[in-house]
Structures are given as structure tokens and as C-alpha cells.
Design a protein around this nucleic acid. Structure first.
Lengths: 382, 382
DNA sequence: CTCCGCACTGTATGCGCATACACTCACTCA
DNA sequence: TGAGTGAGTGTATGCGCATACAGTGCGGAG
């Protein structure tokens, strides 16, 4: 195991030229069967693995797609471990509300999963970067040098950086506001989804004064959802500016805090519409603790469609966004872009699902349908 | 935006040689401040991003670490999308038991998260591969050519493949049985954890005939856990072979099925010890549906420490394994190995936490401790 | 004033592979 | 029998960068 084998070693061992060795990997049909077998035998014998660096350099493409996300939940940051202690078992009597949610950012997990799947299907490998506190520009630049195309969450790096790397490779923005720029975009129908949900609460459930809990102010996702909410209010003849809005940050903890604030200020609202599921779940915890019934006293809704909302009591009415599909779409767009650099900007807007469950309906309604009943309702924001 | 800029372009633009451009990136202190600024200005002007392929080739290292997992839950496999339909909102009345768990494999998510974090901290980028149905050997070989080191789940590819790629780069096996091979290993204390849990059930709770539900037969994790279980029985003077064992597959659905089988065969057992949380949660669903109280009638335990077990009713007693830390450990080992290729094989065994919750204790016991009470118990398998 | 050393920069080369192009042989067909 | 053909293989070169080594110019010491 002295030195790693190269094409030259394999060629010498098999008694052929390096071109033939290369062809065995890249265009096997161009090589006679017997020759190919000889080469492959040498490959096995020498433990040869082609260097992607060399291949990438020669072929002018790496075969890698990149995915970059900023780190929302820095929660998880850990000091240096040395991993040298010997293993044992620690016994903990775990009381009910101990500990925080361990992986708040399953949004990223889902997108990543979809991305990985689609990338590989298209013949690419995936490289991931999650922006730590450190300089995101540095990390994005680093990744940009390694890949044929890069997808990143909108707003995760400055426009300068984006413009810079986009001169080298195509960029796809995930979940951003579409199109006053020249990048390709993939997003979900945030506005339409929240609009449909709000319309349901207002018209079908007859709530004229829903309370809204927003997410981080600077994210396009939050902005779009709120716009959908406002549009539904206006359509229902309600003045949006007359209703209270609480500013959250997509976290569960903030949901708890806001619910407590609301309850401290007066009677529970008829409906609490949260800009994401985590916040809604946090709010539901507090409501339950105060003896307020959901949905009889207060209707609660979320947005995202995370698994926990399906396990909660009551189960959370929400808008399910196709997160894995978002990742797949991003990679698909990238591939499409790589195949034709000149085509006009691509903007995908993936459909969402309004999931009506007990936190808004009462269990009787939810059980009335057999399986997935589809309603006609398809919301559009004017 | 005709052609991507190279060192030559930057050098010409800045009026220096390519060596100076290279140095600005690799060893900035060796370049005079004024010169450096000129170069950086040209970099900005030309949109230059260094090619990792060329750098990797010249430097003989890529700066990338790889992580490969097989795909347990092929559930998610999706046919080709074309993503060309226009967006709307679909409304679904979502009945309680509809749909499967969307992301069963959060084990991978956690490991990935930890890996990414540690890799970046050590100055590496992370490349991920998730084995689809297709040939894992091919994928592993592909990744092996792109990275300086590769961590993969034990048993995910054949020993032949492992041996082949290990001639090029160092390999770290995750969660495998330790060491009759020459690879570095990181794992959690599976046996010790299950041993401690079983001892608790047998000695502290006085159950002499716990029923065990295993996972997939061929995984080292499952094997080690079962060994820990058996060891505790033997220490307690119980004959392991006299007790029934049900064979699961780590899935929730299988947990449901097995619980149904058990109940169909006779009275509920005093304790049901499952080899992972998903299976335990599935079993609890069925027990609840049949009116069997947990833990009064039947104690249920899991293994993993997933978030859902903290949200269930009752909350699940389990052994929490540090999944993210496992990923960090894998990358740490890799870095250590890369720094010294000659050192003896590294084997890490990360400690686990026994979380005693209501599915085994009754709520009074769990509430008695304030915060995290640590017990002395630290199990070791003989 | 000369020589030396230091700080900085340029020149030349190789990293391992893909591929355009040239070449060698059967082999076919006129 | 000769030219033509195509399958298969070899030769030569460049991809973009890092870096060993060789300058270059300057100030200070002798």
C-alpha cells in the first residue's frame, strides 16, 4: 500500500496504453472485450480508483452538485470532543419537559434527502455545506470551486457572493421570492397555501378575527405566507391591519412564549394561525397546559406538515409543503440548466397540500371522510 | 460570462505571475499587501473561483471527506417528476392513521449533521452518498475517487469493495462490530446500553420474563443489542433461550404487527423490550388500541432515543444513542487517521444514555427526580 | 563601496486523466 | 490484387493549479 495506483500503473500492468485504461471506464464499448477484461483485472490487482480531481480537470466538469444551507439552529453547536473517553452507560430519569427538540431543522433534512436522490439519479454526486457561524461566503466559494452547479437557500449569502460564484457555475435558489434576479428558482406555493388555509378558517369555520404568528421577518417564506393570509382576510372583507400579529421565529419555544403572552393579555382567540408547525405545536402545549381546548375553544393551524404535527394531540391542521420534492426539483433544475445554459430563467413553484386535521376541525369531521377526500378548493392569491 | 476565469486570467489582469495568484489563496502572508490587494481586485473583477479539481490534482488531496449510507427506507423512491405542472393547493381531510412515517431514517440525518459539522470544523467539505437500490459498489467507488477519506455504515458494501477502495483512502466504519479487520471503527455502546436497560427491567422492576423484539438479523447494531439483553438475563439467573423473541426490522409497522401477534397468542407480557424506538412506538399504538395500559399492564422499552419517543403517550423509556456525535466521531477519526497513516487501528465506542420514562416507570417515578438525576448504574457486558 | 541575506516574485514542471488525432490491422469489395 | 473501411489502440497534449527553484531588488553590515 505504498502509493496509490494511477492510469499509468494500470496501463503498464495490463500491457496497454493509458488511453485504453481511460476508455475502459469512460466508454467501455470502444474497447475490445478481452482487452477490457485484462484492464479490469489489473484494476483489481492494483486497487486502482480513478482520481476525480484529474478527471474533473481534464473533462472540465466535476460531476458534483452542491447544496448549501445556512444554519438556523445553531443550538447543536458543540465544543471540541476528543472522543477518547471509554464508553459506559449513563442513567437518566428523564422528566417530561426536559431537553429541547433535538433536530428542529428537518426542513433541511428533507430537502437534502430529495436532493441527494435526484442528483444521483441524474448521474451526479452531492456535496453539502451547512453554514456555521463562520463566514458563509467563504464556504459557498469553496463549494463553488468543487461543483458543476450549486443550489442554496435564498438569502443565505449576499448578492455579491451570489453574483461572483454565478459567473463560474449555475445557481439555483431554493424557497426564495421569484425572479427579479437572473437565477433559477424553486419554491413552494407558500402564499397560495396560507391563503387557502386562511380562507378555510374564515369562511368555512366562520372565524372573523384569527390571530397570526409570523416567522423570522427577513425570510421570503414567512413573507409569502403572511401575504397569503392577508389576501384571504381582505377577500373576506376583514381589515388585516385591525388584527394582532405576533412575531415568532419558527421555533417551538417562541410558540410557547407567544401563546403565554396571548393568554396573559386576555381571553383565548378563536383561532391561532401560525406560520409554521413548530410554533403551532409550542403554542398548543401551552394552551393544553392552561386547560384551553383545541379546537373547541381555540383553533390552531401550522405550516410545513412535519411528522410531529401528525402525532400531536390533537393532530395539527397544516399546509404540507413538499420538502423532499423541493430538493429534487432544485437538482432537476440544475441539470436542466447545465444542459442548456442559454435557456431563459426557470422558476418552479411546487404545489402544497392543505391537511385538515383535528386542531381545526373537531374529530368528527376528520373521521367522516374515507381515506383522502379531495376537495375542489384550490387557492390562488390575486 | 463567456469563459470561466483561471489563475492565468487573474495573473494577466493583475500584472503578476500565476504563482503569486496561487499564493494569495494558499499562503497570503507570503505576498506583499499591495500585491495581494491588486490580485484580489482582479479576482473580483473576473469572477474567479479556484478550481478544486486542479487544486486537488496538484496538491494530491481533495479536502473532502465522504459519508456513505445504504438506503434502509426505499419507501421514498419516486418516479421521475418533470416539475412542469403549475402550482395550486390540494385540500385533504387527513384522517388519523393515513400515511406512513415520512422520514424513518433520521438516524442518518443525525449522523450526517454531526459529520458535516465536524468535517467543516476540521477544514474539510463533506460529500454524501445514499445507496439506492442500484449498485452500492459503484457509488462507493465513485465517491472514493473524490475524497481523502470515507466513512460508511458497516455492512453497507462487500468486503471486497471495502478492501479495494481502502488501498486508496482511509476507511472508517460506522456502527460496526469492532475490529477483526484493519479499519478504524466508531460505534455506540449498544450492548452495554441494552444490558443496562434489561438489568433495570429485570432487577429494579422485577420482570422475569421480558419479551424481546429484534431488528434486522444481519445488522451489527441489532446483534450487539441482543447480546446485551441476553447477558442481563443470564446475570439475573434467567435462561435466555426459554424466552420468546420476535423478529422485527426496526420499522414501526413491524412493531404493530408483532404486538398484534403477541396479543393474539395470549395475555400481554409483563414487558416488551424492543430493539429500537420505532418498533416500540408501533407496538404501543396497538397496545393502546387494545386497551392495554402501559406501563401498568405491559412495560415497553425502545432503543435510539428519537424525538417521537419523547412526544408519545406514555413517553418511551429508551436508550439514547448519540447519533450526531457518532458522525462527528467518524470525521474526527478520519482526520486523525489522515494525519498519521501508520498509527494502530482506532476504535471508538461512544457512551449511551438510559432514559427512564413513563413507558416503564409510571409517571410518579419519573416525576420524582428534579431535572436530570444521575444514577450510578453503568452497565458492562462481560 | 561591496557583499550578503532577506523579502518578494517569476519560471518551469508535474499532478492523473480525457480526448483529438494518428496509426495499425484485418477484412471487404470492386 | 489493390484501395477502401472500420474497429481497435497508441501518442501527444492540455486541463488549472501548487510548488520547488531560480531569480530580483533592497537594505544593512563589513
Amino acid at each position: 500500500m505504498n502509493k496509490t495506483a494511477t492510469v499509468y500503473d494500470v496501463a503498464a500492468h495490463a500491457g496497454v496504453s493509458i488511453a485504453t485504461v481511460s476508455r475502459v471506464f469512460r466508454r467501455p464499448d470502444d474497447v475490445r472485450a478481452i482487452t477490457r477484461e485484462h484492464v479490469l483485472a489489473s484494476v483489481l490487482a492494483l486497487g486502482y480508483v480513478p482520481s476525480a480531481s484529474a478527471r474533473g480537470l481534464a473533462a472540465r466538469r466535476t460531476g458534483v452538485l452542491g447544496l448549501y444551507f445556512p444554519d438556523f439552529d445553531v443550538v447543536d453547536s458543540v465544543d471540541d470532543d476528543d472522543f477518547s473517553s471509554s464508553a459506559t452507560v449513563e442513567v437518566v430519569v428523564d422528566i417530561p419537559d426536559s431537553g429541547a427538540v433535538r433536530r428542529p431543522n428537518l426542513y433541511f433534512d428533507e430537502v437534502l434527502s430529495g436532493s441527494e436522490q435526484q442528483a444521483w439519479r441524474d448521474g451526479f454526486t452531492l456535496m453539502v455545506g451547512v453554514g456555521r457561524g463562520s463566514n458563509p461566503a467563504e464556504m459557498v466559494g469553496d463549494i463553488a470551486g468543487r461543483v458543476d452547479g450549486l443550489a442554496l437557500l435564498a438569502g443565505s449569502v449576499s448578492n455579491d457572493v451570489l453574483e461572483h460564484v454565478s459567473r463560474r457555475i449555475p445557481i439555483v435558489l431554493i424557497a426564495g421570492a421569484h425572479g427579479d434576479d437572473n437565477y433559477d428558482h424553486v419554491a413552494v406555493a407558500n402564499a397560495e397555501g396560507m391563503h387557502a388555509l386562511a380562507r378555510h378558517v374564515i369562511e368555512d369555520l366562520g372565524v372573523r378575527d384569527p390571530v397570526y404568528v409570523s416567522g423570522p421577518q427577513d425570510t421570503p417564506d414567512d413573507r409569502e405566507r403572511y401575504e397569503g393570509f392577508r389576501a384571504a382576510l381582505i377577500e373576506g372583507g376583514i381589515d388585516p391591519d385591525a388584527l394582532p400579529v405576533f412575531h415568532g421565529d419558527f421555533s417551538r419555544q417562541r410558540g410557547r412564549e407567544i401563546a403565554a403572552e396571548i393568554l396573559a393579555a386576555g381571553p383565548p382567540p378563536r383561532a391561532l394561525m401560525c406560520s409554521n408547525d413548530q410554533t403551532a405545536l409550542g403554542a398548543m402545549e401551552v394552551l393544553a397546559a392552561r386547560g384551553i381546548r383545541v379546537p373547541e375553544d381555540t383553533i390552531v393551524t401550522g405550516f410545513d406538515g412535519i411528522e410531529e404535527g401528525r402525532m400531536s394531540t390533537p393532530r395539527l391542521t397544516t399546509v404540507q409543503q413538499p420538502m423532499a420534492r423541493l430538493g429534487r426539483a432544485a437538482m432537476w433544475v440544475m441539470r436542466t440548466r447545465l444542459e442548456d445554459r442559454t435557456r431563459p430563467t426557470i422558476t418552479l413553484r411546487l404545489p402544497v397540500k392543505l391537511l385538515l386535521r383535528e386542531s381545526s376541525e373537531g374529530s368528527s369531521a376528520a373521521n367522516s371522510g374515507a381515506g383522502h377526500a379531495r376537495f375542489a378548493g384550490a387557492g390562488t392569491v390575486p
